[in-house]
Amino acid sequence: MDLKITKLYSFGLMLLTLFGSAQAFSSGAMELKTTEVDFFNQQVNRPVKIKFWYQSGSESCEATICLSPKQSSHRVAIISHGAFGSPREMNWLGYALASQGWVVAGVAHFGESWVYGSENIDPSSAMRFWQRPQDISFAIDSLSEEKLFNTSLKTDKVIMLGHSSGGFTSLAMAGANLEAGKSEVYCATEMAKDDKGCDYGQHRKRKPMSDEMVKKIGLLAEQMRDDRVAAVIALDPALGHAVSENSLESIKVPALVLGSVENDFLPYTAHSKYYADHIQGANLVGIEQGAGHFVYIDECDSDREVKGVSLCKDREGVDRNAIQKKILEHVFGFIYRNGFS
């Protein structure tokens, strides 16, 4: 396995006081850091860049990442970004989890994420849905790489989080599978006219899949699940219109689904609510106050739009920072209620 550090940033304990839980670490001789490390999955000939958020000790070590001496070995969380996004847009979530003692790994999906360079962005990669779970399973494997950390981590019970396509990825790791032909039927209906999810892969214009492709998709779907994922947190998850009810009903791990009710990208009923309705015992939180689909990424200052929806500019009156703080309350409440403290 090839391993290379690409960037390192250091921050103070800006988020440690967000949640006054008994599990929070002492601020003595420790700070929050983030480091990006390049790996290569030789099995599928695919690079995997991982952004880590963690608590660092004051002393140096011989490992690539020096964790705090107080680091718990079993607090491991994985984040999957949205389509054509990046873990670099998920600092609000990564640092918050790290402040509570979690080692967080944000996986950049090659072909989609801009962190690999614009020349490596492939629009068709959004339809190769099975590659994302492959990246996640490889990332979990990589956490045991020799000399990556100065402390051995237990990866048999990780928490999986994701936004948009990353939300689907998180749920796929727990058993969610696509149903062949379902998205084409949905995207041809009037109710899907404002669903931006149908624009990916040109669902509205695509011909029905062949029997051979349907069979291939079924085999790939079976390979997406990873039993090391012990809980799932999906933020405004995509592909609800394409996922089978039976696969969702088979999910047994605790699941928290958060979605924007007044959605400007993925209709709440067809995606977030659909997932939660069919996962036994799932917690559903509807985010109101005018929040849109991109309120789940870092605050930013750009004119960029995705499918005609602004990435950085929220609707009038929407306070992205305040909404993210409320989301974190739900996230940590879910984590502690389910015994992952």
Rank of each mutant, 00 (worst) to 15 (best):
K33C: 04
G28A: 12
S165W: 14
G281F: 14
G286Y: 04
T35L: 10
L239D: 10
K325E: 10
Q100I: 10
H163A: 14
D303L: 09
I217T: 12
K207P: 04
L256R: 02
I335V: 15
L220A: 11
W53N: 08
S183P: 00
A276W: 05
S164F: 03
A230I: 05
E299G: 07
P123Y: 04
L328E: 01
V331P: 01
P47V: 03
Q202I: 04
I287V: 14
Y275R: 15
N41Y: 10
K307A: 08
S341A: 15
G290L: 11
A63D: 15
S72H: 13
L97R: 06
K49L: 05
G333R: 01
G162R: 11
D211C: 01
S86V: 07
V158L: 02
K273H: 09
A180V: 08
A188P: 00
T151W: 08
K205A: 03
F52P: 00
N321P: 00
V44N: 01
A172H: 01
D314Y: 00
I251L: 12
A105W: 11
Y54L: 02
Q100E: 15
K147N: 15
F39Q: 08
A126K: 00
I335N: 06
V285H: 07
F334T: 09
I50D: 00
Y9G: 08
A276N: 11
F340P: 12
F334H: 05
R206G: 01
P208F: 12
